Computed example of a mutant assay.
Amino acid sequence: MRSTAPCPCGSDEPFGRCCLPLHLGECQAETAEQLMRARYSAYAADHLDYVWQTWHPRTRPADLTAEVGLTWTGLEILHTVEGLSGDESGQVEFLAHYLQNSGSGHSAPADAAGTLHERSRFAVRARRWFYVDGELFR
Score class of each variant (00 low, 15 high):
residue 13 E to Y: 12
residue 26 E to W: 00
residue 83 G to S: 06
residue 38 A to Q: 04
residue 80 T to S: 10
residue 99 L to M: 12
residue 78 L to G: 09
residue 65 T to A: 14
residue 56 H to D: 08
residue 65 T to E: 13
residue 36 M to C: 08
residue 47 H to Q: 14
residue 129 W to N: 03
residue 27 C to G: 05
residue 41 S to V: 03
residue 8 P to H: 10
residue 47 H to V: 06
residue 130 F to V: 06
residue 94 F to L: 13
residue 8 P to T: 11
residue 20 L to Q: 15
residue 17 R to H: 13
residue 9 C to L: 06
residue 45 A to E: 13
residue 120 S to V: 06
residue 74 G to R: 05
residue 73 T to D: 03
residue 28 Q to F: 02
residue 67 E to D: 12
residue 115 T to M: 12
residue 45 A to W: 01
residue 107 S to R: 14
residue 80 T to K: 09
residue 60 R to I: 10
residue 30 E to T: 10
residue 126 A to M: 04
residue 29 A to R: 01
residue 126 A to N: 12
residue 98 Y to L: 15
residue 61 P to L: 11
residue 28 Q to H: 07
residue 78 L to R: 14
residue 2 R to E: 14
residue 105 G to Y: 08
residue 138 R to E: 02
residue 106 H to E: 13
residue 40 Y to A: 02
residue 104 S to H: 11
residue 26 E to C: 00
residue 64 L to D: 06
residue 101 N to K: 15
residue 107 S to M: 12
residue 92 V to W: 00
residue 86 G to V: 13
residue 8 P to M: 11
residue 121 R to E: 06
residue 1 M to I: 13
residue 4 T to E: 14
residue 5 A to S: 14
residue 76 E to S: 15
residue 70 L to R: 15
residue 85 S to I: 09
residue 90 G to S: 01
residue 83 G to I: 08
residue 23 H to C: 02
residue 25 G to C: 03
residue 1 M to Y: 08
residue 38 A to P: 01
residue 91 Q to E: 13
residue 91 Q to D: 03
residue 75 L to P: 03
residue 15 F to D: 11
residue 117 H to A: 12
residue 26 E to K: 10
residue 130 F to A: 05
residue 15 F to R: 14
residue 112 A to H: 12
residue 122 F to V: 06
residue 37 R to K: 09
residue 64 L to W: 07
residue 39 R to E: 01
residue 48 L to A: 06
residue 91 Q to G: 00
residue 118 E to Y: 05
residue 94 F to W: 04
residue 14 P to H: 13
residue 12 D to L: 15
residue 67 E to W: 04
residue 107 S to V: 14
residue 87 D to Q: 09
residue 86 G to F: 09
residue 82 E to N: 11
residue 64 L to G: 10
residue 115 T to C: 15
residue 9 C to H: 04
residue 87 D to H: 13
residue 116 L to W: 02
residue 50 Y to E: 03
residue 114 G to D: 10
residue 19 C to Y: 09
residue 79 H to P: 00
residue 62 A to F: 06
residue 1 M to D: 09
residue 28 Q to I: 05
residue 127 R to V: 08
residue 7 C to I: 13
residue 2 R to W: 08
residue 65 T to G: 09
residue 79 H to S: 10
residue 35 L to C: 02
residue 71 T to W: 01
residue 36 M to H: 01
residue 46 D to H: 14
residue 6 P to S: 14
residue 67 E to V: 15
residue 110 A to L: 09
residue 135 E to A: 12
residue 128 R to L: 00
